[in-house]
Amino acid sequence: MIDLLSTSNILVHIPVGSGGYDLSYIEAIGTICGLLCIYLASIEKTINYLFGLLNVSLFAIIFFQINLYASLMLQVFFFIANIYGWYAWTRVKEGTQEVELKTRWMSAPKLITTIIICAVFIGLLTVYIDPVFKVLTDIVVNGLNAVGFNITMPELEPDAYPFWDSTMMVLSIVAQILMTRKYVENWIIWVIINLISIVIFSLQGVYAMAIEYAILTFIALNGVKMWQKSAKENGSKPLSSINS
């Protein structure tokens, strides 16, 4: 099992980019779970959260092995968000008026508030991204060492794309939260995140991940279509339709 979870346990060599790309078993399994999670979420299947939990758990192990501790911390957030989303999607209290969460569009106040929050946090993180990730890395490394691990504090290089990296991180958190509440806008945000990811990963020479996010873009576009239809059936309309 330990060997299976190692990034050095290579499943296949993919001839892309300079020197190709060695795809490990754990990355392959984690990626498949991630794709299944997004696809099942796009058709509103609650079991998507099971694959989401597997995906973030495996990716957390990967990030731990390659010393990306801030990314590991983000997976912890996604793990908690997946558990909450599973609960929120299936919560129905017997003997009360509370019903199952329905797919819908955001109201104008919520949408405006979300846009402002995103803009503020993207701006702040762009300026302070390096010290923020240093603090997150210190927290994770010291926490792991406190429970028996022996990890050397890594030397962090300055972020290559602070604005775009900050944008992807903030929007990913917001999109995940909106998905747990079944707001259609979450898929629009995922499309934006995936398009940015394709460009950044291509510039960094990580072509396999760029291809993965291209696939995720099409799944997210399908999510927009499917959830828009579902929201319409629930009597919810986008703001442009309401105002027209």
Rank of each mutant, 00 (worst) to 15 (best):
P131W: 06
L178R: 03
Q176I: 01
V199D: 02
V147C: 09
K45Y: 15
Y128S: 08
G19T: 07
F79T: 13
L171R: 06
T31A: 09
T126K: 08
I188C: 10
L101V: 02
A220R: 14
E94P: 03
K93M: 09
T167S: 14
K93L: 06
A81D: 06
A220I: 07
L35S: 07
S166V: 07
N82L: 15
V184Q: 00
Y21S: 03
K182T: 03
E233N: 11
K102P: 00
G148Q: 11
A81C: 02
D165V: 11
Y213A: 10
F77C: 13
M169E: 15
I38S: 07
L68E: 06
K225T: 13
L124A: 10
M169R: 15
P131C: 02
E157V: 07
I43N: 13
I122P: 01
I129D: 00
G52D: 02
I192N: 09
Q204W: 05
L195C: 08
L23C: 02
T180Y: 04
Y25W: 15
T152F: 09
Y207V: 12
F133M: 14
L36P: 13
I219F: 12
I192K: 05
A41K: 10
C37R: 15
S8D: 12
I196E: 09
S24K: 00
K229I: 12
T114K: 02
W187C: 09
S8T: 01
A81N: 08
A146L: 07
T114M: 11
N186R: 04
N142S: 14
Q228A: 15
W187N: 09
A60S: 13
S57N: 12
S240H: 06
Y161H: 07
R181L: 14
G148N: 00
I10S: 04
G123C: 09
P131M: 10
G52T: 04
T152D: 10
I151R: 12
L50E: 09
M73I: 14
K110Y: 00
Q97S: 14
V132R: 03
P109D: 13
N243Q: 14
Q228K: 11
W86M: 11
L178Y: 05
N142Q: 06
N142V: 03
V120E: 06
Y128V: 13
I189N: 02
I2F: 07
Y39D: 11
I193M: 04
S18T: 15
L4P: 06
V206Y: 10
I200W: 00
G205R: 11
A81I: 02
